[in-house]
Simulated scan of single mutants.
Amino acid sequence: MASRVSDLPHQKGIAGEVKPKIVAGHGRQNRKALGDIGNLVNDRDLATGKDIAKKAKQSKSEVIVISPNENEKSCKPNVSKRGSKTFTATLKARSKAASGVKDDVIDIDALDVNNELAAVEYVEDIFKFYKIVEEEGRMRDYMESQPEINAKMRSILIDWLIDVHRKFELMPETLYLTINLIDRFLSLTMVPRRELQLLGISAMLIACKYEEIWAPEVNDFVCISDKAYSREEVLAMEKSILRQVEWCITVPTPYVFLARYVKASVGCDVEMEKLVFYLAELGLMEYPLVVLNRPSILAASAVYAARQTLGKTPSWTETLKHHTGYLEDEIVEYAKMLMKLRDSAPESALRAVFKKYSVSENAEVALLPSMDDLSVSCS
């Protein structure tokens, strides 16, 4: 697998670490090749680029890095180990000048400037590309074309798959890709009720082969489904899924946006990170929220709701606006939906996500006090 282009706040790099066994964590994720990408500066901003080059010649011992502290809006000169301005720092400065980024937008990639694996020169272009792809790949409302399946049955399946995902100790990317494959297949093909679980385990099998270093075998999925389906049926459904989605598996799921947006929520600790993913996984079971909206909407809404829950101020910063592309009033309604799901989760019949995030390993974020309502003042 190719290395990931963004990482969570507590990780230093983005490359997945090879492990001797299947473990939970953040794995590496393949991405589509990008087209013609460049750091272009228009005529109006050419002088800015020249000034940068001139300044680099005058003071080769300084490297400009935007402070990650949200309260600090000035640049701090740091001394490079090689005693000169790095090529990456120059590119970032030129890119900022060309795009007209506001001073109060924090450079969340500043700490990765010397990490080649972070691809800081291209990461913003990559996520712009993801936004284009997610729009082109939006699914239609397929429930009316499924005579034997409804939204509740889908929720039951996703809840069970989240439990399977936890028992197999799979990577989070695998879960999000599994659900993406399920929804895309259902939007293209009518599936009988008796084959819905078969679709679920076959989609997870494909996702495991794509994301995991040590993937479960076909017989593992046969056993986890209590031998309701044979090995041959699982393999036949696997072929059917791949044929229907035309072998297009490299897609921007909510996970790729979650990883980036959590990083953009400057000051994010482990508790907030876990809460964001808890809210997002609750949202995965809601058909209208996942299928009828863009993946980035779910990710942005989960970050906003988590910040509201933990009392982070402001709830939606200029940095988050810049990296998500959403204004506060565009995600408030979706955030309210996630908060209602969180408040009702302890009493819900579908408890896989609640149990998963009630343990210390996940900071027990499912046990946080509930909020009566999500009060928001949009400016």
Rank of each mutant, 00 (worst) to 15 (best):
V18W: 14
F185S: 03
V191S: 00
A302F: 00
L188T: 12
V63I: 15
D109Q: 04
Y278H: 03
K239I: 07
I179L: 08
D329C: 09
V41S: 11
A349K: 02
E195T: 05
I156A: 13
G49E: 14
K128I: 15
D220I: 01
V222Y: 02
E232S: 14
K76F: 14
C223I: 10
S301K: 05
L8Y: 06
Q308G: 06
S301G: 04
W316F: 05
H10C: 08
P20N: 12
H165I: 07
K209F: 05
T88I: 14
E233H: 09
Q146M: 03
V303G: 04
A93L: 00
A24T: 15
G38M: 15
R94C: 11
L117E: 14
Y255W: 12
K209N: 05
L341E: 00
A110H: 03
L350C: 10
V133R: 07
A89T: 06
P369L: 10
V276G: 00
L34Y: 11
K321H: 13
V101T: 06
V101A: 02
D107T: 05
T178Y: 02
V133E: 04
G267D: 00
K60M: 15
Y326T: 01
A33G: 13
E148P: 05
S377K: 11
L170P: 05
C248I: 10
E148F: 07
Y304R: 01
L157E: 00
K21I: 07
S99P: 12
S155K: 15
S6C: 10
A24Y: 11
E364R: 03
D159V: 06
P288H: 01
L368W: 08
K209P: 07
A366P: 03
R140V: 15
A207F: 08
N69L: 11
V256A: 05
S6G: 08
N114F: 12
L186P: 02
G35W: 02
V365R: 02
K81T: 10
I179F: 03
R44Q: 15
S67F: 02
S296V: 04
D226Y: 08
A302D: 02
S74G: 09
I37Q: 13
I158L: 03
L320G: 00
I52N: 00
V222Q: 03
I108D: 01
L175P: 12
N78Y: 12
Y287D: 06
V123E: 07
Y261H: 09
R4E: 04
E232F: 14
L91H: 04
E286A: 09
N293W: 14
E333D: 12
